[in-house]
């Protein structure tokens, strides 16, 4: 079964929870384990928080776009902002790297996304914005039900 949805919301931290719940509700039709569901919500939080805090620097009038597609056991999640972008993507992805050390951010957002998902593609251009595309194959349900 294939299914898809798109969610667009204002770049305010209140909407982080909306994004998590929408993705969780959507993905739950695939019958993931609770652990997989928690991992997916965590990566959504990380990417959405990055869009709001880094991409839009908390300008509450900007919009974050999220889309999610499922196909069989495969999940694709895309989170996009039209914010300030990342000039050095490799550096940004390094564990503990953060451009806002004064904020007590952990610098672990990208590391978490790469660990919880099978694949993470980052496309970004300064002043154009950032798109994070993440893929994950659910394995547990298949192993359990077949």
């Amino acid at each position: 079964m294939r299914n898809e949805m798109t969610l667009e919301f204002l770049s305010v931290s209140e909407n982080e929870s909306l994004a998590r719940v929408a993705v969780a509700a959507f993905v739950s039709q695939m019958n993931p384990t609770m652990e997989e569901l928690t991992d997916i919500k965590t990566v959504v939080s990380e990417a959405v928080t990055n869009a709001i805090i880094h991409g839009y620097e908390e300008n509450p009038h900007q919009k974050v776009m999220l889309s999610c597609a499922i196909d069989g056991e495969q999940i694709e999640i895309i989170i996009k902002d039209e914010g300030k972008g990342i000039s050095d993507i490799e550096e940004a992805k390094e564990p503990l790297f953060t451009s806002k050390p004064e904020w007590e951010r952990s610098g672990m957002g990208f590391t978490i996304m790469e660990n919880f998902m099978d694949k993470v593609d980052v496309t970004s251009d300064p002043d154009i914005g950032t798109t994070i595309r993440m893929m994950k194959q659910l394995t547990s349900t298949r192993a359990l039900c077949n």
Partner: peptide, 9 residues
């Protein structure tokens, strides 16, 4: 001995 699925829960 593992995380339950959403349906199981």
């Amino acid at each position: 001995g593992r995380s339950p699925t959403v349906n199981e829960l």
